[in-house]
């Protein structure tokens, strides 16, 4: 794909919004679709996904004046909007405002427990460390993790995107998880009174 710099694109959004939106949709529908589809395919129809993808671009346009390329890339903005839209729609479709999206029982156990502020800080720190650890995995492992856990892509999709075999992707995920677990095992927090993640 042609790469248009974010600042050129935002300039175009001001001067020729329809042209800029067409480019944006052409360039980023794959990203937005991946995120939305992974969030709501289990509870919604293909039409729901499509409508939500369109809503993400609409929301981006509405926020265009506030979009600050110093804070994040167009890709980052779209991804975050897609996450939020996907979660909202999932909740509506699933008929609950409590249940979180795409998280298994283990995670729900964490969030259903009310954390005190200190626990919240520890959890945040833990998650920051986890994200940093993913950054250290090296390529293509890092990209595989992001595709799987951020974009919600399936093994087959990741394998095709990265020209890998399906079982290579699965092995890399499995090994990566082990590596992350070792990396995370070394985190020490002082003065932690209680921690849901402490085993």
């Amino acid at each position: 794909m042609k790469e248009v710099k974010d600042f050129d694109l935002l300039k175009e959004l001001n001067t020729n919004p329809n042209r800029a939106m067409e480019y944006l949709i052409e360039q980023y529908t794959g990203l937005v679709y991946s995120i939305i589809n992974s969030k709501i395919s289990s509870v919604g129809t293909a039409e729901d996904v499509k409508e939500c993808v369109s809503d993400v671009f609409m929301e981006f346009y509405r926020q265009a004046k506030q979009i600050d390329p110093a804070k994040g890339s167009v890709k980052g903005y779209l991804a975050v909007i897609a996450k939020h839209k996907g979660i909202d729609l999932y909740r509506r479709l699933a008929g609950t405002a409590i249940r979180n999206v795409n998280m298994d029982e283990t995670y729900e156990r964490f969030i259903d427990n009310k954390l005190n502020p200190e626990q919240e800080v520890i959890r945040k720190e833990q998650r920051n460390f986890l994200l940093q650890a993913i950054e250290t995995l090296g390529e293509p492992d890092r990209e595989i993790f992001i595709r799987k856990y951020y974009l919600g892509q399936k093994t087959k999709e990741i394998a095709e995107a990265l020209y890998l075999r399906d079982n290579t992707v699965d092995k890399k995920i499995s090994r990566g998880l082990k590596k992350l677990r070792i990396l995370l095992g070394g985190v020490v927090h002082e003065g932690a009174e209680d921690n849901l993640l402490t085993k």
Binding site: M103, L130, I134, Y149, L180
Partner: peptide
């Protein structure tokens, strides 16, 4: 860990 990663993301 697998549950925590998407939650963190």
């Amino acid at each position: 860990l697998e549950a925590e990663i998407p939650a963190a993301m």
